[in-house]
Computed example of a mutant assay.
Amino acid sequence: MSNEGTRAISPWRRLFGIPLVTTMTFMVLMLATAVINGLPVRDPDGFLGPSYVRLPLIVVLVMVVDVVPRVFAQRPRAGEILGTIGQVFKSRWTMPRVAAITAGMASFYLAYVAYRNLKSFLPFLRDRLTDSVLVNTDRWFAGGSNPSDVLHELLGTGITAEVLSVIYVSFLIFVPVSLAVAMVWSDDLSRGAWYVSALCFNWILGTATYYMLPSLGPIYVEESSFADLPVTATSALQDSLYENRLAVLVDPHATQSVQGIAAFASLHVSIMFTAALMAHLIRLPRPVRWLLWIYVSLTGLATVYFGWHYILDVPAGLAIGGLSVWLAALATGRLHRPGRRRADKKLHPSA
């Protein structure tokens, strides 16, 4: 079979072959860890529903948003609408492209589920916490004070807390939506593969840092420093995570919850830095790039302000994000195969 035929039939193998094998290996590691230590494996539910339901629904929604405007742009007559939808869908969503998107979502799902479960296993496998070291490091950076106290004094604890809470919690929506948009709307399929693969590497590298320096974070070891903050969606999330942690520690087999507390490093920062760096490298419109860089800065600020993370967790998150982008570029061929990127771009023809 010719190279042209291979490119048309199996783009997912070029773009997601290495990431899929990597995430499957990560999943096997998680399953082996669970079996060896007698720990249950859970599908981590978010507030938008289980990831295996949430991700496909978001993809379908983005596909609809992609197809519908193109259909109406052709101004079909009432009896021609269904036929026009079929034509647009067929031209936009070829089987090779659908296969690549499926492989990308599978890679993300495997990495995410393995990450969440290995994070949940953490207190059973690494029971010595390093918070005392990180607290001392924080105070050294802040000249003897708690960094959160400095921020509360400088920025206040009223409207600032509300704004930063919205920014922090919006991450929970940003990740699945950006994932779907990258795979569905990108005119260059290799760009979407690059971003999705970078997210996968973030989960993998982030898990490694959790085990390197197991820690809870300032909000759970110095709670008094955050007593003046108002009740927000962020504080509710912190309480919920702590309750889930206690339930898992009491009996991991008696709850469907997962333990989701780990401070070093900040994956909120690493994921947002990944998105901003990717937007910069692929030259997205300048307003998008500026918004993402602002989002990165405010996310880093919010993590310390609310006590999710220590100061050192933020640059560690930046390092994970940068390394993930580079590893994903290697895995998807962005660094070595410009000709193939042009071929992948043709899989998303304009209707």
Score class of each variant (00 low, 15 high):
183 M>I: 05
202 N>G: 05
210 Y>M: 11
201 F>Y: 15
203 W>D: 12
189 L>F: 00
195 Y>V: 15
186 S>Q: 13
178 S>G: 12
200 C>N: 15
210 Y>H: 14
183 M>P: 02
207 T>A: 12
188 D>A: 12
179 L>S: 02
209 T>Q: 11
184 V>A: 07
181 V>A: 14
180 A>P: 09
204 I>Q: 11
210 Y>P: 08
185 W>M: 13
184 V>N: 08
199 L>S: 12
198 A>I: 10
178 S>K: 07
187 D>R: 15
180 A>R: 09
190 S>V: 03
185 W>R: 13
204 I>F: 04
183 M>H: 01
188 D>G: 02
187 D>K: 13
197 S>T: 15
189 L>S: 11
181 V>M: 13
188 D>M: 02
192 G>I: 02
203 W>M: 14
196 V>A: 14
204 I>M: 15
206 G>T: 07
186 S>C: 03
182 A>K: 00
200 C>K: 00
194 W>A: 06
184 V>T: 09
194 W>V: 08
186 S>M: 13
210 Y>N: 13
198 A>C: 07
203 W>R: 02
185 W>P: 04
201 F>H: 12
195 Y>D: 01
188 D>V: 15
196 V>N: 00
180 A>Q: 09
199 L>T: 10
184 V>K: 08
187 D>T: 08
183 M>Y: 05
190 S>I: 02
189 L>G: 03
204 I>E: 09
200 C>F: 10
181 V>P: 06
210 Y>S: 07
199 L>W: 03
188 D>Q: 15
187 D>S: 13
186 S>W: 01
191 R>E: 15
194 W>N: 01
184 V>L: 00
186 S>E: 14
196 V>T: 13
211 Y>I: 07
211 Y>W: 06
206 G>P: 06
200 C>A: 12
178 S>I: 10
196 V>D: 08
207 T>C: 13
180 A>G: 10
179 L>A: 09
197 S>I: 04
197 S>F: 00
188 D>K: 03
182 A>F: 10
211 Y>H: 09
193 A>L: 08
199 L>Y: 02
203 W>L: 02
208 A>T: 04
203 W>E: 12
183 M>D: 05
209 T>Y: 09
185 W>V: 07
208 A>D: 06
199 L>N: 09
186 S>R: 13
196 V>I: 14
189 L>A: 14
180 A>N: 11
208 A>R: 04
188 D>N: 15
197 S>M: 09
199 L>R: 05
204 I>C: 09
178 S>D: 04
209 T>R: 10
182 A>I: 00
189 L>M: 15
187 D>C: 01
207 T>S: 12
210 Y>D: 00
205 L>T: 04
208 A>K: 03
